[in-house]
Design a binder for these strands. Sequence first.
RNA 1: UCCUCAGUAGCUCAGUUGGUUAGAGCGGCGGACUGUUAAUCCGUAGGUCGUAGGUUCGAGUCCUACCUGGGGAGCCA
Length: 465
Amino acid sequence: MLFMIRSTVKELFSANRLNEDVILKGWVRTKRGNKRVAFIAVNDGTIIHSIQVVADAEKFPEDLLKDITTGCSIKVKGKLVESMGKGQKVEIHANELEVIGACDPEVYPLQKKGHSFEFLREIAHLRFRTNTFGAVFRIRHAISYAIHKYFNDKGFFYLHTPIITASDAEGAGAMFRVTTLDLDDIPRKENRDIDFSKDFFGRSTNLTVSGQLEGELGALALSSVYTFGPTFRAENSNTPRHVAEFWMIEPEMAFHDINDNMDLAEDFLKYLVKYALENCMDDLEFLNSMIDKELLDRLHFVLKNEFVRMGYTEAVKVLRESGHTFEFPVEWGLDLQAEHERYLVEKKYKKPVILTDYPAEIKSFYMKQNDDNKTVRAMDVLFPKIGEIIGGSQREEDYNKLLNRMREMNIPEKELWWYLETRKFGTVEHSGFGLGFERLLMFITGMVNIRDVIPFPRTPKNAEF
RNA sequence: UCCUCAGUAGCUCAGUUGGUUAGAGCGGCGGACUGUUAAUCCGUAGGUCGUAGGUUCGAGUCCUACCUGGGGAGCCA
């Protein structure tokens, strides 16, 4: 054997390489043993499982074995053999060992034992090396891929909507300003207003809070498009379900009404859950055993059951007749509170619920107005434990109705002239929704804090790493 | 932003009505053990008690402000 390439742990466990000489590189999770033999668990992140490397003490200098500590990176050359011990089928009997990068155990923060997620957030640069976060981020990748696959297979086009936007008209939340102005010497107009004509784009700009409006432009030519990109909200939100920078998937479809929209949302979510079950079982089983014993049951349950679909008006009726005492009032015209949504999803129906046809006053200007002149074709998908995972609607395609609504809600029509023009030139019925990628991941992984499903969470007062 | 709980060793926590030298488990280190699985057993080091003020003879403990984190609410994905 003149030349050998490194094998990953995943390959060693899946391919039939028994009794072959192999090279392994990875990071040491634990080392056990005695004077005669050392057992080294090596993980390279390709799979949740670590592989056991067995080193006979007599074959290696004492100092070398001493340097192999939790966290260090090593190269192992040896033979893949059936394990003599219980707990693993195969292991590597080492012939050569080399420490690639040492790791001082006095200061290395990760221990063999479990750590709190709060602590691991403070060492986000190292938490990838834990079983839990390895699993979460492998799943995050798999679901990202599945999203593209789903839409591609359905004939959707991936549309890149802008990250920097000049429109702050949508009202989806507070925005982060993008500027190159000198903050120590801000140019002012005569009336003391900031003179944005001196700014990079010659106008005020922000980070996007949604690609929807631009997505609609694409859909009204390409039929079906989707976006999948970063989204920014400068809200001072401090909850386990909010981050300032997150990833959102926003499909937008021409010739689709609200029912088509709901069908797509349900099919899409189920596809992604199914994809996880079919492709990430190792990681899901780990999460199920260590994080959330009901995770797999819940995933299967969502697949098996149809989502409940009901109108806002009916939901209000159900809540009022429930006999349940709520802290906040339930009354037609008021927005539903978290406790109300939770009652419907977790107590009453015990499955995902899609609510539609909300009062116009509590929803966005672009939603299609119903004939009752009171409600709009909004659609919220509510999930157990997570709450609103999708928000969407059929869009108002009637130019005059849209314009009137914008005036009523003080949306600056001049800034959105391009949005209005699509209703002037060959308008069609269309719909879409926004899925919070991290919220979906919370559901699929069982993680209860959104900061633990995104590699580097951005929250108020925290932009470390 | 509001409500609420918390901050003590590397980690997770205990610390009584304020009282003398602040404890445990885990992890680390040293040793024992012929194949271990979160190994086990013996030994050992390790602390500006979140920060700044204040009350008191005396503060980890009480008070005030601030910082950070958790949970709940709002905003929403």
